[in-house]
Amino acid sequence: MKKIFLPVFIFSAFAGSAQTDIDAIMMEKNAFCTGPLYSYSSWTNYWEGTLKRDNQNLGKVSTQMFGLMGNYGLTRKVNLLFSAPYVKTKASAGTLHSMNGMQDLNLFVKWRPYQKRVGAGRLSLFGIAGISFPLSNYVADFLPLSIGLRSKTASARIMADYQQGNLFVTGSATYVLRDNIKIDRTSYYTTEMHYTNEVEMPDASSFNFRAGFRNHRLIAEAVVNNWTTLGGFDITRNNMPFPSNRMNATTVGINIKYVIPAIPQLSIVTGGNSTVAGRNMGQSTTVYGSFFYVLGLGSKTKLTGKPAKK
Protein backbone atom coordinates (compact mmCIF):
# COMPACT_ATOMS: atom_id res chain seq x y z
CA MET A 1 0.00 0.00 0.00
CA LYS A 2 2.94 2.28 -0.26
CA LYS A 3 2.78 4.56 -3.19
CA ILE A 4 4.83 6.90 -5.24
CA PHE A 5 4.24 9.61 -7.72
CA LEU A 6 5.18 9.62 -11.33
CA PRO A 7 6.02 12.59 -13.39
CA VAL A 8 2.76 13.32 -15.12
CA PHE A 9 3.27 16.91 -14.13
CA ILE A 10 6.29 17.24 -16.37
CA PHE A 11 4.00 17.34 -19.30
CA SER A 12 6.43 19.04 -21.59
CA ALA A 13 9.07 16.42 -20.90
CA PHE A 14 6.83 13.89 -22.62
CA ALA A 15 5.74 16.06 -25.36
CA GLY A 16 8.96 15.92 -27.18
CA SER A 17 9.52 17.61 -30.40
CA ALA A 18 6.27 18.89 -31.72
CA GLN A 19 6.00 22.60 -31.27
CA THR A 20 6.05 22.52 -27.53
CA ASP A 21 7.04 24.97 -24.89
CA ILE A 22 10.42 23.32 -24.53
CA ASP A 23 11.71 23.12 -28.11
CA ALA A 24 13.01 25.69 -30.52
CA ILE A 25 10.30 25.33 -33.12
CA MET A 26 8.12 28.36 -33.80
CA MET A 27 4.89 28.64 -35.75
CA GLU A 28 4.57 31.31 -38.38
CA LYS A 29 2.17 34.19 -37.85
CA ASN A 30 -1.48 33.09 -37.75
CA ALA A 31 -0.62 29.42 -38.16
CA PHE A 32 -2.25 27.10 -35.66
CA CYS A 33 -1.01 23.64 -35.02
CA THR A 34 -2.99 21.22 -32.91
CA GLY A 35 -3.38 17.55 -32.24
CA PRO A 36 -4.06 14.82 -29.75
CA LEU A 37 -1.39 13.12 -27.71
CA TYR A 38 -1.41 9.77 -26.02
CA SER A 39 1.23 8.64 -23.58
CA TYR A 40 1.71 5.57 -21.46
CA SER A 41 4.01 5.57 -18.51
CA SER A 42 4.70 2.86 -15.96
CA TRP A 43 7.02 1.81 -13.19
CA THR A 44 7.49 -1.01 -10.74
CA ASN A 45 10.47 0.40 -8.84
CA TYR A 46 10.52 3.72 -7.11
CA TRP A 47 12.69 5.75 -4.84
CA GLU A 48 11.55 5.95 -1.23
CA GLY A 49 13.67 8.99 -0.45
CA THR A 50 16.91 7.84 -2.03
CA LEU A 51 16.27 4.13 -1.43
CA LYS A 52 15.17 2.24 -4.51
CA ARG A 53 12.52 -0.40 -3.87
CA ASP A 54 9.51 -2.14 -5.33
CA ASN A 55 6.14 -2.63 -3.68
CA GLN A 56 4.13 -5.81 -4.00
CA ASN A 57 1.05 -3.93 -2.88
CA LEU A 58 1.24 -1.73 -5.97
CA GLY A 59 2.78 -4.02 -8.55
CA LYS A 60 3.15 -1.95 -11.70
CA VAL A 61 1.76 1.57 -11.52
CA SER A 62 0.72 2.90 -14.88
CA THR A 63 -0.46 6.26 -16.12
CA GLN A 64 -2.23 6.88 -19.38
CA MET A 65 -2.58 10.38 -20.67
CA PHE A 66 -4.84 11.64 -23.40
CA GLY A 67 -3.88 15.21 -24.17
CA LEU A 68 -4.84 17.93 -26.55
CA MET A 69 -2.11 20.38 -27.46
CA GLY A 70 -2.02 23.48 -29.56
CA ASN A 71 0.37 26.17 -30.71
CA TYR A 72 -0.69 29.45 -32.32
CA GLY A 73 1.66 31.86 -34.02
CA LEU A 74 0.76 35.30 -32.80
CA THR A 75 3.76 36.47 -34.78
CA ARG A 76 6.73 34.53 -36.03
CA LYS A 77 8.50 35.59 -32.84
CA VAL A 78 5.68 35.11 -30.33
CA ASN A 79 3.77 31.85 -30.04
CA LEU A 80 0.99 30.89 -27.65
CA LEU A 81 0.71 27.26 -26.55
CA PHE A 82 -1.66 25.18 -24.52
CA SER A 83 -2.05 21.61 -23.37
CA ALA A 84 -4.91 19.92 -21.57
CA PRO A 85 -4.43 16.32 -20.41
CA TYR A 86 -6.89 13.71 -19.21
CA VAL A 87 -5.06 11.27 -16.96
CA LYS A 88 -5.87 7.77 -15.77
CA THR A 89 -3.80 5.83 -13.26
CA LYS A 90 -3.85 2.22 -12.15
CA ALA A 91 -1.92 -0.12 -9.87
CA SER A 92 -1.67 -3.73 -11.07
CA ALA A 93 -1.58 -5.21 -7.55
CA GLY A 94 -2.94 -4.37 -4.12
CA THR A 95 -6.35 -2.90 -3.39
CA LEU A 96 -5.91 0.79 -4.15
CA HIS A 97 -8.48 2.32 -6.47
CA SER A 98 -7.44 3.83 -9.79
CA MET A 99 -7.96 7.54 -10.41
CA ASN A 100 -8.84 9.50 -13.50
CA GLY A 101 -9.82 12.99 -14.53
CA MET A 102 -8.87 16.17 -16.28
CA GLN A 103 -5.54 17.28 -14.90
CA ASP A 104 -3.97 20.75 -15.34
CA LEU A 105 -4.32 23.25 -18.14
CA ASN A 106 -0.92 24.52 -19.23
CA LEU A 107 -0.59 27.85 -21.02
CA PHE A 108 2.66 29.21 -22.41
CA VAL A 109 3.92 32.28 -24.17
CA LYS A 110 7.02 31.53 -26.18
CA TRP A 111 9.05 34.44 -27.38
CA ARG A 112 12.07 34.46 -29.62
CA PRO A 113 13.68 37.87 -29.24
CA TYR A 114 16.97 36.97 -30.87
CA GLN A 115 18.00 35.00 -33.93
CA LYS A 116 21.30 35.51 -35.72
CA ARG A 117 23.89 33.69 -37.75
CA VAL A 118 26.78 32.78 -35.52
CA GLY A 119 29.68 30.98 -37.10
CA ALA A 120 28.44 28.47 -39.60
CA GLY A 121 25.02 28.12 -37.94
CA ARG A 122 22.21 30.07 -36.45
CA LEU A 123 21.67 30.96 -32.80
CA SER A 124 18.19 31.57 -31.41
CA LEU A 125 17.33 32.69 -27.92
CA PHE A 126 13.95 32.22 -26.30
CA GLY A 127 12.05 33.33 -23.25
CA ILE A 128 9.08 31.21 -22.23
CA ALA A 129 6.55 31.94 -19.52
CA GLY A 130 3.86 29.54 -18.46
CA ILE A 131 1.08 29.03 -16.00
CA SER A 132 -0.85 25.92 -15.07
CA PHE A 133 -3.89 25.24 -12.95
CA PRO A 134 -6.19 22.28 -12.29
CA LEU A 135 -9.06 21.74 -14.70
CA SER A 136 -11.04 19.68 -12.22
CA ASN A 137 -11.35 19.06 -8.51
CA TYR A 138 -9.15 15.97 -8.69
CA VAL A 139 -7.46 14.46 -5.62
CA ALA A 140 -3.77 15.31 -5.11
CA ASP A 141 -3.33 13.48 -1.81
CA PHE A 142 -3.61 9.90 -3.04
CA LEU A 143 -0.13 9.27 -4.32
CA PRO A 144 1.04 7.46 -6.33
CA LEU A 145 -2.38 7.11 -7.92
CA SER A 146 -3.22 10.82 -7.86
CA ILE A 147 -3.42 12.18 -11.38
CA GLY A 148 -1.49 15.33 -10.43
CA LEU A 149 -0.43 17.61 -7.62
CA ARG A 150 -3.09 20.34 -8.02
CA SER A 151 -0.58 23.12 -7.46
CA LYS A 152 -1.08 26.22 -9.56
CA THR A 153 2.24 27.00 -11.13
CA ALA A 154 3.98 29.82 -12.92
CA SER A 155 7.15 29.06 -14.77
CA ALA A 156 9.86 31.07 -16.46
CA ARG A 157 12.28 29.49 -18.91
CA ILE A 158 15.26 30.66 -20.88
CA MET A 159 16.31 28.61 -23.85
CA ALA A 160 19.06 28.71 -26.45
CA ASP A 161 19.14 26.81 -29.75
CA TYR A 162 21.97 26.47 -32.20
CA GLN A 163 21.55 24.87 -35.58
CA GLN A 164 24.19 24.19 -38.18
CA GLY A 165 23.08 22.41 -41.31
CA ASN A 166 20.69 19.71 -40.17
CA LEU A 167 22.20 19.36 -36.71
CA PHE A 168 21.07 21.25 -33.68
CA VAL A 169 21.40 21.55 -29.95
CA THR A 170 18.89 23.14 -27.56
CA GLY A 171 19.30 23.83 -23.88
CA SER A 172 16.90 25.36 -21.43
CA ALA A 173 16.55 26.13 -17.76
CA THR A 174 13.22 26.60 -16.02
CA TYR A 175 12.13 27.85 -12.65
CA VAL A 176 8.68 26.74 -11.50
CA LEU A 177 6.85 28.64 -8.80
CA ARG A 178 4.31 26.39 -7.13
CA ASP A 179 1.37 27.59 -5.14
CA ASN A 180 0.20 25.89 -1.94
CA ILE A 181 -2.50 23.25 -2.26
CA LYS A 182 -5.43 22.19 -0.11
CA ILE A 183 -6.05 18.52 0.69
CA ASP A 184 -9.11 16.69 1.97
CA ARG A 185 -7.74 15.93 5.43
CA THR A 186 -7.33 18.43 8.22
CA SER A 187 -3.79 17.61 9.29
CA TYR A 188 -0.71 15.84 7.98
CA TYR A 189 2.80 14.93 9.08
CA THR A 190 5.89 15.76 7.03
CA THR A 191 8.92 15.92 9.28
CA GLU A 192 6.66 17.62 11.80
CA MET A 193 2.96 17.94 12.42
CA HIS A 194 0.82 20.38 10.45
CA TYR A 195 -2.62 21.14 11.85
CA THR A 196 -4.02 22.48 8.60
CA ASN A 197 -5.34 21.24 5.27
CA GLU A 198 -3.03 23.58 3.39
CA VAL A 199 0.26 22.19 2.09
CA GLU A 200 3.25 24.33 1.29
CA MET A 201 4.57 23.24 -2.07
CA PRO A 202 8.27 23.78 -2.68
CA ASP A 203 9.26 25.40 -5.97
CA ALA A 204 11.05 23.38 -8.61
CA SER A 205 13.63 23.82 -11.31
CA SER A 206 14.13 21.96 -14.53
CA PHE A 207 16.92 21.60 -17.07
CA ASN A 208 16.43 20.23 -20.54
CA PHE A 209 19.03 19.42 -23.14
CA ARG A 210 18.26 18.08 -26.59
CA ALA A 211 20.31 17.51 -29.71
CA GLY A 212 19.94 15.76 -33.02
CA PHE A 213 18.85 16.09 -36.60
CA ARG A 214 16.32 18.66 -37.73
CA ASN A 215 15.10 19.71 -41.12
CA HIS A 216 11.72 20.67 -42.55
CA ARG A 217 10.71 17.02 -42.90
CA LEU A 218 12.28 15.12 -40.02
CA ILE A 219 13.35 15.75 -36.50
CA ALA A 220 15.19 13.08 -34.56
CA GLU A 221 16.58 14.07 -31.22
CA ALA A 222 17.90 12.76 -27.97
CA VAL A 223 16.64 14.49 -24.84
CA VAL A 224 17.88 14.67 -21.28
CA ASN A 225 15.57 16.25 -18.74
CA ASN A 226 16.10 16.93 -15.08
CA TRP A 227 13.42 17.98 -12.64
CA THR A 228 14.49 19.04 -9.16
CA THR A 229 12.16 20.01 -6.36
CA LEU A 230 13.72 22.84 -4.38
CA GLY A 231 12.76 21.69 -0.90
CA GLY A 232 10.26 19.20 0.38
CA PHE A 233 10.94 16.07 2.39
CA ASP A 234 11.77 12.42 1.78
CA ILE A 235 9.26 9.61 2.15
CA THR A 236 10.08 7.84 5.40
CA ARG A 237 10.57 4.07 5.53
CA ASN A 238 7.51 2.26 4.22
CA ASN A 239 5.41 5.43 4.40
CA MET A 240 3.04 6.86 1.79
CA PRO A 241 4.30 9.58 -0.53
CA PHE A 242 2.96 13.10 -0.15
CA PRO A 243 2.51 15.99 -2.60
CA SER A 244 5.23 18.09 -0.96
CA ASN A 245 7.89 15.36 -1.13
CA ARG A 246 11.24 16.29 -2.65
CA MET A 247 10.52 14.75 -6.05
CA ASN A 248 13.45 14.66 -8.43
CA ALA A 249 13.86 12.84 -11.71
CA THR A 250 16.33 12.67 -14.54
CA THR A 251 15.04 11.17 -17.76
CA VAL A 252 16.71 10.36 -21.05
CA GLY A 253 14.73 9.77 -24.18
CA ILE A 254 14.31 10.20 -27.88
CA ASN A 255 11.75 11.98 -30.04
CA ILE A 256 10.98 11.66 -33.71
CA LYS A 257 8.80 13.93 -35.76
CA TYR A 258 8.04 13.23 -39.38
CA VAL A 259 6.10 15.47 -41.77
CA ILE A 260 3.98 13.41 -44.17
CA PRO A 261 5.26 14.33 -47.65
CA ALA A 262 1.85 14.02 -49.32
CA ILE A 263 0.13 16.12 -46.65
CA PRO A 264 2.69 18.68 -45.40
CA GLN A 265 0.23 20.05 -42.84
CA LEU A 266 0.27 16.72 -41.03
CA SER A 267 3.09 15.39 -38.95
CA ILE A 268 3.39 12.35 -36.76
CA VAL A 269 5.35 12.41 -33.57
CA THR A 270 6.54 9.61 -31.36
CA GLY A 271 9.08 9.10 -28.65
CA GLY A 272 9.84 7.79 -25.26
CA ASN A 273 11.97 8.27 -22.22
CA SER A 274 13.25 6.43 -19.24
CA THR A 275 14.04 7.62 -15.75
CA VAL A 276 17.69 7.10 -14.91
CA ALA A 277 17.82 8.77 -11.51
CA GLY A 278 15.20 9.92 -9.07
CA ARG A 279 14.08 10.64 -5.57
CA ASN A 280 10.60 10.09 -4.11
CA MET A 281 9.36 9.16 -7.57
CA GLY A 282 8.74 6.13 -9.71
CA GLN A 283 11.41 4.90 -12.09
CA SER A 284 9.12 5.29 -15.02
CA THR A 285 9.38 4.44 -18.66
CA THR A 286 7.21 6.46 -20.98
CA VAL A 287 6.21 6.13 -24.59
CA TYR A 288 4.01 8.51 -26.48
CA GLY A 289 2.55 9.17 -29.87
CA SER A 290 0.79 12.08 -31.44
CA PHE A 291 -0.10 13.72 -34.69
CA PHE A 292 -0.31 17.39 -35.42
CA TYR A 293 -2.17 19.26 -38.04
CA VAL A 294 -1.28 22.78 -39.08
CA LEU A 295 -4.14 25.11 -39.94
CA GLY A 296 -3.64 28.42 -41.75
CA LEU A 297 -0.42 27.28 -43.30
CA GLY A 298 -0.64 29.55 -46.34
CA SER A 299 1.89 30.21 -49.02
CA LYS A 300 3.51 32.87 -46.89
CA THR A 301 3.77 30.80 -43.76
CA LYS A 302 5.86 27.85 -43.03
CA LEU A 303 7.38 25.99 -40.16
CA THR A 304 10.66 27.49 -39.17
CA GLY A 305 12.25 24.29 -38.05
CA LYS A 306 14.91 24.40 -40.71
CA PRO A 307 17.82 26.75 -40.94
CA ALA A 308 17.27 30.07 -42.64
CA LYS A 309 19.08 30.32 -45.92
CA LYS A 310 20.70 33.64 -46.34
Partner: peptide
Amino acid sequence: TASTLLFFISCNKQVEGR
Protein backbone atom coordinates in the same frame (compact mmCIF):
# COMPACT_ATOMS: atom_id res chain seq x y z
CA THR B 1 5.45 36.86 -17.63
CA ALA B 2 6.06 39.68 -15.21
CA SER B 3 2.48 39.78 -13.94
CA THR B 4 2.18 36.03 -13.41
CA LEU B 5 5.51 35.97 -11.61
CA LEU B 6 4.51 38.92 -9.45
CA PHE B 7 1.20 37.27 -8.63
CA PHE B 8 2.96 34.18 -7.35
CA ILE B 9 5.76 35.95 -5.58
CA SER B 10 3.24 38.10 -3.74
CA CYS B 11 1.50 34.96 -2.47
CA ASN B 12 2.65 34.12 1.02
CA LYS B 13 3.46 30.42 1.13
CA GLN B 14 3.71 30.29 4.91
CA VAL B 15 1.03 27.94 6.16
CA GLU B 16 -0.65 28.63 9.46
CA GLY B 17 -1.93 25.83 11.69
CA ARG B 18 -5.46 26.08 13.05
